[in-house]
Each structure stands twice: as structure tokens, then as C-alpha cells.
Amino acid sequence: MSEGILISVYVFVLAVFVGIELITKVPPLLHTPLMSGSNAISGITVVGALLSAGAGESRLSAILGLLAVIFATINVVGGFMVTDRMLGMFKKDKKKNREGESVK
């Protein structure tokens, strides 16, 4: 089992590095959607919540699990939906270059 934990630590550390590589390249333009999107991803804890809420052995655990499912689902659904709404607002100017002069 302690070896299992060790492997989990390996996975964690490597994933942190992947995260750093990915996020460093995100331009400031997208920082808010990135944050609300990654916020939604942190709602992955819903997976653990489902297991707790569904395991019938302990009443207390199931109730804690139910609360966890509610909170995590708000996080996931709200986070992804608002990110999508936000990203839908980002538009390129179609009228640009009309005068033959680009702004970039």
C-alpha cells in the first residue's frame, strides 16, 4: 500500500509539471476563462463524492457525500457553463482591415 501512495505521489508531481507547462503559455487575454474553467475541473472531486454518497454502509458518510455531490456539482456545472458563456463573447473584429490598415 505504501508503494501505492508512492506511485500516487509520482503521478501528482508529474501532473504539476504538465500543468505548469500548459498554463505558462496562456495569454492574459484568457486568464479569467482559464481560471473559471480550471475551477470547474477542480470539481472532479465529485467522483469521490459520488462514491461516498452512494455507499450504503454509513448513514453519516452518505449525508456528507450528498452535501459534497451538491457542492461539487455546482462547481462543475456553473464553472463550465460560465466559461463557455464568457468565451462566446470573445470575438475578432470582422470589419478590421477594411481600410487596408491592420492594427497589428
Partner: peptide, 9 residues
């Protein structure tokens, strides 16, 4: 993995 990604971000 997901937690680590968000933590890094």
C-alpha cells in the same frame, strides 16, 4: 491529476 493541474494553474 486534475487537482495537480488546477493547483499548478
Amino acid at each position: 491529476i486534475s487537482g495537480a493541474l488546477v493547483g499548478a494553474s
